[in-house]
Computed example of a mutant assay.
Amino acid sequence: MRKSAEERKAEILATALRLADELGPDRLTTQAVAGAVGLTQPAIFRHYPTKQALWLAVAQHIQDRMMAAWNEALAPDLPPASRIAALVDAQLCMIESSPAIPAILFSRELQVENVELRQSFAGLMAAFHANLGAELRQAREAGTVRKDFDPIDGAVLLISLIQGLAMRWSLGARGFALRPEGARLLAIQMKLFADPISQEKSA
């Protein structure tokens, strides 16, 4: 049965993500994608006129999935600390399911050549930073973190934790469970953010 244009575009995107992981984003070619999908290169260009257009579609696909995961994580009935944990876990879940994401984010060659791609990911990271900052601000108001705590700096530290962990996971041939390790390190980080007096009372 012949696939619809939307089904074919989704298949091309999924294949591009898989090959970006296997080959590296800077070595990915439309010819490689075409061969893996079972199409000719001109057939790929009927759906995505240029390689840049394909990468922008990949970025939009990642953005849509991430934002949906964030919205699910930000359940209003949960306390701020639980929402922070859910946001971090959602991000690690995305990386686990699409391991090419860190390589794409840090591909200097790819992002130098594709300004729109760089801007897309910069906007995505800014939105994630804003979400974490907002939750950390509420955690401060709730007394979960110390009163002199800066939520903006805290969000940077949490993003750095995720990025460093993702890099270690990638370089270590994915030799450990990403999400449990993320939860463990986040718990340590949140203790460092906490008010010492509150910690003494709860001890």
Rank of each mutant, 00 (worst) to 15 (best):
A5W: 07
E6L: 12
E6G: 08
I12S: 01
I12H: 04
A14P: 00
A14T: 07
L17K: 03
L17V: 05
E22I: 05
L23M: 12
L23R: 12
T29N: 10
Q31C: 07
A32P: 07
V33W: 01
V33H: 03
V33Q: 03
G38Q: 09
L39E: 04
H47R: 08
Y48R: 03
T50M: 07
T50Q: 09
Q52D: 14
A53T: 07
L54I: 04
L54R: 01
W55C: 00
W55T: 00
L56H: 06
A59H: 04
Q60F: 05
Q60N: 12
Q60W: 06
H61F: 11
I62G: 00
I62E: 02
D64R: 14
R65S: 10
M66D: 13
M67Y: 11
N71Q: 15
A73R: 01
A75R: 15
D77G: 06
L78C: 10
P79Q: 10
S82I: 04
A86K: 08
V88S: 02
D89T: 15
D89Q: 14
A90F: 09
E96S: 13
S98R: 09
P99R: 09
A100T: 00
A103S: 14
A103H: 05
L105D: 02
S107M: 03
E109P: 04
Q111R: 15
V112M: 14
E113D: 12
E113T: 06
E113S: 14
N114L: 10
V115W: 11
E116K: 04
F121K: 00
G123A: 09
